[in-house]
Amino acid sequence: MTVTTDTELLTTVVREIGVFLETDTSHLRPDSSLTAELDNMNSLKLYEMMLYLEDAIGFSFDEKVVDRLDTVQDLVDYIRERLR
């Protein structure tokens, strides 16, 4: 997947989170918490979501980072870094 701008990447990440969770994620903003603002999110689902995003967006994540991702912006920033 080719994503050029931060805005595009944010849009893509929010959309793919919605696909993964099979839920509406249009309420998510950059400072939204990945756990508190996603219904029933937990550490297992977050890791599973990273595996999904890895394939959907085309990057490779280091499993140690999962515990450090608090907000949507954290996730976007990390993916941006990995896409470089």
């Binding site: 550490s43 297992l44 890791y47 599973e48 595996l51 890895e54 280091d62 499993e63």
Partner: peptide
């Protein structure tokens, strides 16, 4: 090994 789903064992 880092790409194993956490739902595998459950």
């Amino acid at each position: 090994p880092g790409k194993t789903t956490p739902f595998l064992i459950p």
